[in-house]
Nucleic acid binder design. Structure first.
Ligand code: FES
Ligand code: FES
Lengths: 149, 149
DNA sequence: TTAATAAAGGATATTTTTATCCTTTATTAT
DNA sequence: ATAATAAAGGATAAAAATATCCTTTATTAA
């Protein structure tokens, strides 16, 4: 559905939102470890997110990434857009040059509802909402192998 | 959603189903032109589809591809599987190592229903059904630029 | 039986995505 | 001021996906 870059981006912003405070910023090392992603690639992605203003960053000792508490909540679609994947849900599932209701491909009608709902989720869900559920232990960012029973 | 290879595969089988008869087989050239895909890449894909038994082929003069009328209808998921993309809808949208209800990622619940629906579509819809709608002019495999009004 | 045809198969090339490395810049603590 | 630290940025490398080319094999028509 998303590229690795976009997956890492979403996971990174989630971790930064959960654990990054202005007085206790998160280093790239810390973030990559938490979301289990390749460090240098994650650094690149954080550069982009920082440039786009979706996360705040400070260089130097005790520097790192955090979320400005007075910034507007960030939606999933903002991250997807920052990673230049805004069109994942606008293009034809069979690769036709356009996805349209008037000249639908053979599976257009079957996938349309799905794509729209998902688009809606990306627009409505903010990182803050998802971070809250993570903090409450309702959702997870890593799979922990726990033995059955 | 799918790779180019898978998109071309589905489109190719659709065209072969619509236009390929045992007495009037379709050449690679013809197929690639119809579905507007790069010819040599399409040839590779047709090799795979033929090897997997999803289309029939004959070499030599008047050879080409066709669908054995007494073969079982082919579902979309059979094609997706032949192209080794069966896991597109089984993996976690955020790239976690597993997609599970017990350790759901932050968007698992939001995407689960749609993944299942789509999986169902791929399993139930056969190429024959889709080819019929194409023949009836209800759906399209190419976008024709028609002037408005 | 030979020549022509068309897919099959193998090897290679290109592009995109993913990942790494190194140098520069900003910030902080000393 | 100086040294240490950490992100930013640029250049490069590796892997995967996409695409092309060439040789072989099967089939058919002449
Ligand atoms: S035209 Fe193919 S998904 Fe809309
Ligand atoms: S765990 Fe992420 S989609 Fe199911």
């Amino acid at each position: 559905m998303f590229t690795k870059a976009c997956e890492y981006a979403i996971r990174a912003v989630l971790i930064i939102t959960m654990k990054g405070k202005e007085e206790q910023k998160l280093s790239i090392q810390h973030i990559a470890k938490e979301i289990d992603s390749p460090l240098p690639f994650t650094a690149k992605i954080l550069q982009t997110l920082s440039r786009e203003g979706l996360v705040a960053s400070v260089k130097g000792p005790n520097g790192g990434f955090y979320i400005d508490p007075k910034a507007k909540p960030v939606s999933l679609s903002q991250i997807v857009k920052a990673m230049e994947e805004e069109n994942v849900l606008n293009t034809c599932a069979l690769g036709l040059k356009e996805c349209s209701d008037t000249q639908p491909c053979p599976i257009h009608h079957q996938v349309k509802a799905y794509k729209q709902k998902l688009k809606h989720v990306l627009q409505e869900k903010t990182i803050q909402m998802l971070a809250k559920e993570l903090n409450e232990g309702k959702t997870f960012l890593r799979i922990s192998k726990k033995r059955k029973k």
